[in-house]
Design a protein around this nucleic acid. Structure first.
Length: 262
DNA sequence: ATGGCAGTTCCTAACTGA
């Protein structure tokens, strides 16, 4: 089983790149982030014609997540509220960042973690609050059901210095500040481990490159897209790879796909 | 130190992203 994650930065702009990529890489599940489209306008047919079932949660202009699966997905749920209750979640489900469902014996959680804008900003505090609720959400999911978890998506956090092209002076940089990294580590204490680091310990493997300053051609990137797995699934993982090919195309997303295989 | 690039909408300016 192969599960991929890809922040496409608008599914309508990137549709043909996603179609081409799925034809070349017929993964079992593809989790998309930043679809940037309301559900009624999601371009379903070209993806359904490839044999995928689609489950989407989007909004106008910003955010938006989707799960594409070769087999029907069971027990789809959208946002934090179905698991935690509306009173706990408050305003956090207004932005469409969470979709989950079960494929085989695996519960897949597809996330678009808030960017945070700048350290100390209102959006930064929103990001930290969101990550706290995410921890409770995953903990509750695990308590309610015995499934293995694959929690994947755009986390907008580089876990450590190996995950940034130039780690110098990054403590005050969004996606690398100590509070964000600690919030991510707190999430993982529910019992999750980074699939990529099972296979690759060295620095210099990235999933996102800034559109500006020719960052991709200079390989000035960050590893911010991840798969986090519960222990049994982690043990069953046989590879986790970054496919840089889509980032090299004309008019690419600034992120590129990551694939885990069991 | 600054801004740089891209997508979207309230569409030719402002916002969000990371």
């Amino acid at each position: 089983m192969k599960i991929a994650t890809w922040n496409v930065n608008s599914i309508r702009t990137r549709l043909m790149q996603v179609v081409d990529w799925l034809q070349a890489n017929p993964v079992d599940v593809l989790c998309l982030q930043e679809t940037k489209v309301v559900d009624a306008d999601f371009p379903r047919s070209p993806l359904e014609n490839l044999g995928y079932h689609l489950y989407v949660s989007g909004q106008k202009s910003y955010n938006g997540v989707a799960i594409l699966s070769r087999t029907p997905v069971e027990d789809i749920s959208i946002g934090f509220a179905p698991v935690l209750g509306a009173d706990v979640v408050g305003d956090l489900d207004e932005q469409k960042r969470v979709i989950t469902g079960i494929v085989g014996n695996v519960r897949i959680v597809n996330l678009y973690v808030p960017n945070g804008s700048a350290v100390g900003s209102d959006k930064y505090h929103y990001k930290l609050r969101w990550l706290k609720v995410l921890r409770e959400y995953l903990k509750t999911l695990l308590e309610k059901q015995p499934h293995e978890l694959c929690v994947c998506g755009d986390f907008n956090i580089a876990p450590d210095h190996r995950d940034i092209h130039d780690p110098k002076g990054r403590d005050e940089h969004i996606m690398a500040s100590p509070a964000e990294r600690q919030a991510l580590q707190d999430v993982l204490t529910v019992g999750l481990a980074d699939a990529f680091r099972k296979f690759t310990a060295e620095a210099g493997h990235f999933t996102w490159w800034d559109y500006r300053t020719r960052a991709f051609s200079r390989d000035r990137g960050w590893r911010i897209d991840h798969h986090y797995l519960t222990p049994n699934l982690y043990n069953q993982a046989i590879s986790c790879t970054i496919d840089k090919a889509p980032r090299q195309l004309e008019q690419p997303s600034d992120h590129t796909p990551v694939i885990v295989e069991f």
